[in-house]
């Protein structure tokens, strides 16, 4: 049975697409799935360093499409997890070295071999984005709880619809509970209400993500971190499990009452 091609996209740059792709791919492979990560950000290769595989690259995606090498020879095997491979982007080529039709063909070939093909999309809505979504069966949209990121996500949702990708799933990244609590950041309900698509994950803003990236080891390897746990939850949801969402938003009335009371008691004591 053929696998599934999922594109990870956002519109706005720097919201966490590459980080998400690396972590979800690693997590799915840890669960025993055969996974291929495709870096579609031609000219701005990044997924290789986030995965810690930058020293192993010989061929890239454009070489494969141009027939310079066999697909098999361009795939880089992950050094820690079985069944996890990366097809790196070309670094010294232009985005238009590849057409959407060629990308679709590539994705169709890959999904014969893999359970999941995760495509890391470049930012923007131009050629690179159209390449990234060309072969996708479904999409994961990454946003942060900020006005410009949510606005761009909305635009992307519209463009995906035009491409017959009708039920993209939303990942809200870099939530800061302290800011949500004091009313200075939109919470999950706010974002969902505005974008009106299905939520599949909530990832807190977490320094451990940067530490992990520095080492080239996706944070999902450390399930004790909040972000690692959050990514792991998304992986399980992708696999069809019903996993409750982490409580990150502001507390309900009772919770606030309890906290205030306990604070008053402490002060008096």
């Amino acid at each position: 049975m053929a696998g599934k091609v999922l594109v990870v996209t956002s519109g706005k740059g720097g919201v966490g697409k590459t980080t998400t792709t690396a972590n979800l791919g690693t997590g799915l492979a840890l669960l025993g799935r055969r996974v291929c990560l495709v870096d579609a950000d031609i000219g701005l290769r990044n997924l290789d360093v986030v995965m810690g595989l930058e020293n192993r690259i010989v061929y890239d995606l454009v070489d494969v499409i141009e027939g310079q090498c066999k697909l098999r020879n361009a795939l880089i095997k992950d050094k820690r997890v079985e069944n996890l491979f990366l097809l790196p982007a070309a670094q010294t080529r232009e985005k238009d070295a590849v057409t959407p039709a060629q990308m679709k063909e590539l994705c169709d070939t890959l999904k014969q071999e893999f359970d999941y093909v995760l495509v890391d999309s470049p930012a923007g809505i131009e050629h690179g984005f159209r390449n990234a979504i060309a072969g996708a069966d479904d999409a994961l949209i990454v946003t942060t709880p900020e006005v410009s990121a949510v606005r761009d996500a909305d635009r992307i949702i519209g463009m995906l619809e035009a491409h017959e990708i009708r039920s993209p799933k939303l990942i809200v990244n870099r939530i800061r509970p302290d800011m949500v609590k004091r009313g200075d950041m939109m919470d999950i309900d706010d974002v969902i209400e505005i974008l009106a698509i299905q939520l599949i994950g909530v990832v807190p803003d977490d320094q451990e993500v940067i530490v992990a990236t520095n080492k080239g080891e996706p944070v999902i390897f450390d399930r004790r971190t909040r972000s690692g746990q959050a990514y792991y939850n998304i992986v399980r949801r992708l696999e069809g499990e019903d996993v409750p969402f982490m409580q990150i938003g502001p507390d309900g009335f009772v919770e606030r009452l309890r906290r205030l009371l306990s604070r008053d008691v402490r002060r008096r004591a």
């Binding site: 009313g183 950041m185 706010d190 502001p250 009335f253």
Partner: peptide, 17 residues
């Protein structure tokens, strides 16, 4: 503090969006 909600900048963000 008990009854306050949506007092920060988030309301502005939502309305503008």
């Amino acid at each position: 503090r008990l009854f306050s909600r949506e007092e920060g900048s988030k309301k502005a963000a939502k309305d503008r969006l």
